[in-house]
Design a protein around this nucleic acid. Structure first.
Length: 809
RNA sequence: GCCAAAAUGGCGGAACUGGUAGACGCGCUGGACUCAAAAUCCAGUGAGUGAAUAACUCGUGUGGGUUCGAGUCCCACUUUUGGUACCA
């Protein structure tokens, strides 16, 4: 009988669907396990083999955990708001809803064809009003707590897309060939900075890849420093700067403010005014990228004004330069050119003095010294001296001194900025806010606030969304008077910020999630997805989760206890898969040819899950052969002389060697599966199958064990064979096999013999042989003798059960 | 520039807390089966010297070091990938 994967796979997929095999148990005494994939945006180009890597991994874990007695939640849904569907609508007039529905259908077919054990009764879709009702509800919670506010902000405006982009999206769009400029616009902003400290601190407890945690830490960018007030000469004002190095105050030789600083023009003396105005105007014309991108020569202009260095009493020229960022710290800095690269470059450019205040190994006039592990010098006045002090003590002493003089205070700063949350698009969650004539705003009382039908999807030319063109939706009146609706919609991140909660209670009309269910299922035991979401999605979702925690909707501080990033699968040319390169391997195509089980196995066999690795279509042949070999364990013969498998698998005993191999395999597959080392688990199963064939053994226990081990990996094939050998129920209901610890240890071991660390021979010895016996045996090994002859043995090293090494001279 | 990870045959990759480097698979070579092919099966396959299934030498990015013994630990460097980019 031949292994016809397409019939078999269809048969069992239908069976699972009919039997509701993977429906999550709603109430259960079992321990729970929540394994989640980052849900996809259903694009028009379908799924390729790279998309299926993470899903395959999570599915193996889900099936494995079920067989270990867990009640498993393994859901799937669609992050379906987003630009591509809208752009397609602009081009063709097709409603994004239609496009989205079609794409979802095709995605779902592919996923089902892979035999993934999702509980499809929990499927969610972020564009479904029953879902985005709660996205809007969360927005209102944020608004009520002052965490959502409107602000006229310089935004990244993309002319071609007629929309605002988040800082994080800018680079990506520029890479795609769009132009992005700075432009002030009224925007909704979420105050993620209010949670910066907690977002940083709580990272420590998460079981996440260290690099992802580090990326988030860098993104949050906490720094400890001081704000210091500098008195301005000839002005009755002070200038506040932020610095992390108050210990270098004695070395500050000038100040720099950003071109947007409120004092920039005011500080300009009559003589300098024209030049200053010119510089400020030019800075405004530059885009963010031109200003901050790439290292370039520093530019600046002198205001003509001076401030006083509170430590030295010396006058400090105040300069304006666009290398100082407006939006960080106070938009003004004190420059210590001897000990800061940027300040040093600027000082050299404009001939400003460079004074060494940290003991440097070289002349600071020639090269900057930024080290912190050296002591202060040239740093004293009648009131305070930092000389000889190392960094932290100098910092402390200077901080106290400035505090006592009331011209400085300690300050913690973050790189993290508030999150610009609005988009001028149609295909997103409408922001449920009403604007009244008097300028007040109120929240919508009935949710969801639906998206109206529109004629055209083009944004309005004013930069408002297409919603601004729909008068009957836009304007309304209630007891508070006439109002105009908010026309901005939410960014795509919104829906994915909380979807993992909705899977737990997907149809609840009354609340976002039932508290009892939340307590049972949260938090997520394993979250698998791509590293491209290391910062944005994962940071935004953590932020929302913490807000929901604060208002009592959830009971865990963090949503994703364990995170795993699967490595990208590259095309066969070792490049990232993309339509333009023409190296995309569509999932359906490979399944057609080799079957879902082979694709599943091969995805995992390619290499370590976390690693970036190229696809190689030839390699899947090996997996195909392996599956055929498994098939032939049960159906060994050709069509004619076939015994029915149930009869063929009689109680023929297993050779001891094979039995040990079986127990070793159980152990290895079990451990490797838990640790997501699927490539080595598969390799171990291959070894076992090869041994089975070599031994020609048809022992029932051996065959059943093999099928049970393989069930999570190749679910269709194992279901079919499980049935063929006489079982009346699904293999998914069987527990994972256990091994006998006594049988995984070999009674006779190969001992290595080395002379001076080089391999010279081996011999066999029973496990646990005493050292003396091993030494004696080792000396007798023929290939070793000649290396010992005529030499003096200086030392004999014996490692029990492993090796003997003679150090000779 | 800074931060993080990595570098092993022709290729993807194995190697437990330092203990036989190259498991498993691809590819390749030879053989069996076949009229022939496909499929399947068997054998071989890191490099070098060698008639050799004898024996030895070299070999895990480079150079040092620790150790009886290093792919694994330490130092320096090179390259690749990811992140970040004037955050004071």
């Amino acid at each position: 009988m031949k292994y016809e994967f397409s019939d078999i796979e269809r048969k069992w997929q239908t069976y699972w669907q009919e039997q509701q095999t993977f429906a999550t148990e709603s109430s259960s005494d079992k321990p729970k396990y929540y394994v989640l994939d980052m849900f996809p945006y259903p694009s028009g180009s379908g799924l390729h083999v790279g998309h299926l890597e993470g899903y395959t991994a999570s599915d193996i874990i889900a099936r494995y955990k079920r067989s270990c007695g867990f009640n498993v939640l393994h859901p799937m849904g669609w992050d379906a708001f987003g630009l591509p569907a809208e752009q397609f609508a602009i081009k063709t007039g097709t409603h994004p809803k239609e496009t989205t529905e079609q794409n979802i259908k095709s995605f779902k077919e592919t996923l089902q064809r892979m035999g993934f054990s999702y509980d499809w009764s929990r499927e969610i879709n972020t564009t479904d009003p029953r879902y985005f009702k709660w996205t809007q509800w969360i927005f209102l919670q944020l608004y009520d707590r002052g965490l959502a506010y409107m602000s006229e902000v310089d935004v990244n405006w993309c002319e071609e897309l007629k929309t605002v982009l988040a800082n994080e999206e800018v680079e990506e769009k520029i890479a795609d060939g769009y132009t992005v400029v700075r432009r002030p616009l009224r925007q909704w902003v979420l105050k993620i900075t209010a949670y910066a400290e907690r977002l940083l601190a709580d990272l420590d407890e998460l079981d996440w890849p260290e690099n992802v945690k580090q990326m988030q830490r860098n993104w949050i960018g906490r720094s400890v420093g001081m704000e210091i007030d500098f008195e301005l000469r000839c002005h009755n004002r002070r200038l506040k700067v932020y610095t992390t190095r108050p210990d270098t105050l004695f070395g500050a030789t000038y100040l720099v403010i950003s071109p947007e600083h409120e004092l920039a023009e005011k500080l300009a003396t009559a003589q300098q005014l024209v030049e200053v105005k010119n510089y400020i105007r030019q800075a405004k014309l530059k885009t963010e990228l031109e200003r901050t991108g790439l290292q370039k020569e520093k530019t600046g202009v002198f205001t003509g004004s001076y401030a006083i260095n509170p430590a030295t009493g010396e006058p400090l020229p105040v300069w304006i330069s666009d290398f100082v960022l407006t939006s960080y710290g106070t938009g003004a800095i004190m420059s210590v050119p001897a000990h800061d690269q940027r300040d040093w470059e600027f000082a050299r450019q404009y001939n400003l003095p460079i004074i060494e205040v940290i003991k440097s190994p070289h002349d600071v006039q020639e090269k900057v010294f930024e080290g912190k592990d050296s002591c202060c010098v040239n740093s004293s006045n009648p009131e305070i001296s930092l000389n000889q002090l190392p960094f932290s003590e100098a910092f402390e002493r200077m901080a106290s001194w400035l505090e006592s003089k009331k011209i400085g205070e300690r300050k913690v700063n973050y790189k993290l900025r508030d999150w610009i949350f609005s988009r001028q698009r149609y295909w997103g969650e409408p922001i449920p806010i009403k604007h009244y004539l008097d300028g007040t705003i109120r929240t919508e009382t009935t949710l969801p606030l639906m998206l109206p039908e529109v004629e055209a999807y083009h944004p309005s030319s004013t930069g408002e969304s297409p919603l601004a063109n729909i008068p009957h939706w836009l304007y309304g009146e209630d007891e508070d008077g006439p109002f105009r609706r908010e026309t901005n919609t939410m960014p795509q991140w919104a829906g994915s910020c909380w979807y993992y909660l909705r899977f737990i209670d997907p149809t609840n009309q009354e609340r976002l999630i039932d508290p009892e269910k939340e307590r049972y299922w949260m938090n997520i035991d394993l979250y698998i997805g791509g590293a491209e979401h290391a910062v944005l999605h994962l940071l935004y979702a953590r932020f929302w989760h913490k807000v929901l925690y604060d208002i009592g909707v959830v009971t865990t501080k963090e949503p994703f206890q364990k995170l795993f990033n699967q490595g990208m699968i590259l095309g066969e040319d070792n490049e990232k898969m993309s339509k333009s390169r023409g190296n995309v391997i569509p999932a359906d195509q490979v399944m057609e040819r080799y079957g879902a089980d082979a694709v599943r196995l091969y995805e995992m066999f390619l290499g370590p899950l976390e690693q970036v690795k190229p696809w190689n279509t030839n390699g899947i042949e090996g997996i195909s052969r392996f599956l055929t070999k498994v098939w032939r364990v049960v159906y060994p013969g050709s069509d004619r002389d076939e015994l029915t498998p149930a009869v063929a698998l009689s109680g023929e005993p297993m050779p001891e060697e094979l039995e040990r191999r079986m127990h070793k395999t159980i152990k290895k597959v079990s451990q490797d599966t838990q640790n997501l080392k699927f490539n080595t688990a598969i390799s171990e199963m291959m070894v076992f199958v090869n041994e089975l064939h070599k031994a020609g053994c048809r022992n029932r226990e051996a065959v059943e064990t093999l099928l049970l081990l393989l069930a999570a990996y190749a679910p269709h094939l194992t279901e079919e064979l499980w049935e063929a050998i006489g079982h009346g129920h699904s293999i998914t209901k069987e527990p994972f096999p256990s091994f006998d610890p006594k049988l995984v240890e070999d009674p006779v071991l190969t001992i290595t013999v080395q002379v001076n660390g080089k391999l010279r021979g081996t011999f066999s010895a029973p496990a646990g042989s005493p050292k003396e016996a091993l030494l004696e045996e080792a000396r007798k090994v023929e290939s070793v003798i000649k290396f010992l002859e005529g030499k003096t043995i200086m030392r004999e090293i014996v490692v029990a059960d492993k090796l003997v090494n003679f150090a000779v001279k």
